[in-house]
Amino acid sequence: MFVRIVKMSFEPSKIDAFLAYFATKKELIRGFEGCRFLELYRDKTNANIFFTYSYWEKESDLENYRQSELFKNVWATTKKMFNDKAEAWSVNKLVTLK
Rank of each mutant, 00 (worst) to 15 (best):
1 M>H: 12
1 M>Y: 08
1 M>C: 08
3 V>H: 04
3 V>R: 04
4 R>Q: 09
5 I>G: 01
6 V>H: 03
7 K>S: 01
7 K>E: 09
9 S>E: 15
9 S>W: 05
10 F>E: 02
10 F>I: 06
10 F>A: 00
11 E>F: 11
11 E>W: 06
13 S>G: 05
14 K>A: 14
14 K>C: 11
15 I>Q: 01
16 D>Q: 09
18 F>I: 05
19 L>T: 03
19 L>M: 12
19 L>S: 00
20 A>W: 04
20 A>Q: 12
20 A>F: 12
21 Y>G: 05
23 A>T: 10
24 T>Y: 10
25 K>E: 15
25 K>Y: 07
26 K>F: 00
27 E>C: 00
27 E>N: 03
28 L>K: 10
28 L>T: 05
31 G>D: 02
31 G>V: 03
31 G>K: 01
33 E>F: 08
33 E>L: 12
34 G>I: 02
34 G>C: 03
35 C>E: 01
37 F>N: 04
39 E>S: 04
40 L>A: 00
41 Y>L: 11
41 Y>K: 07
42 R>L: 08
42 R>Y: 06
43 D>F: 07
45 T>L: 14
46 N>W: 00
46 N>A: 15
47 A>T: 14
47 A>R: 14
47 A>M: 12
48 N>L: 06
49 I>V: 15
51 F>T: 04
51 F>E: 03
51 F>C: 02
51 F>L: 11
52 T>V: 04
52 T>Q: 06
53 Y>T: 10
54 S>A: 07
56 W>T: 01
56 W>N: 00
57 E>K: 09
57 E>P: 00
57 E>Y: 08
59 E>W: 08
60 S>R: 08
60 S>K: 09
61 D>Y: 04
61 D>P: 02
62 L>D: 00
64 N>V: 08
64 N>D: 15
64 N>W: 04
64 N>I: 11
66 R>D: 15
67 Q>I: 07
67 Q>M: 13
68 S>R: 05
68 S>G: 07
68 S>Q: 05
69 E>L: 15
69 E>S: 12
69 E>R: 14
69 E>N: 14
70 L>V: 07
71 F>Y: 13
72 K>M: 14
73 N>Q: 09
73 N>E: 13
74 V>W: 01
74 V>R: 04
75 W>T: 02
75 W>E: 05
77 T>A: 09
79 K>T: 09
79 K>Q: 07
80 K>P: 00
80 K>H: 10
81 M>Y: 06
82 F>D: 02
82 F>V: 09
83 N>A: 15
83 N>H: 09
83 N>D: 13
86 A>T: 11
86 A>W: 15
87 E>H: 15
87 E>I: 11
88 A>L: 04
88 A>N: 15
90 S>I: 11
90 S>Y: 12
90 S>P: 05
91 V>L: 14
91 V>S: 12
91 V>F: 07
92 N>P: 15
94 L>W: 10
94 L>P: 06
95 V>I: 15
95 V>A: 14
96 T>S: 06
97 L>F: 13
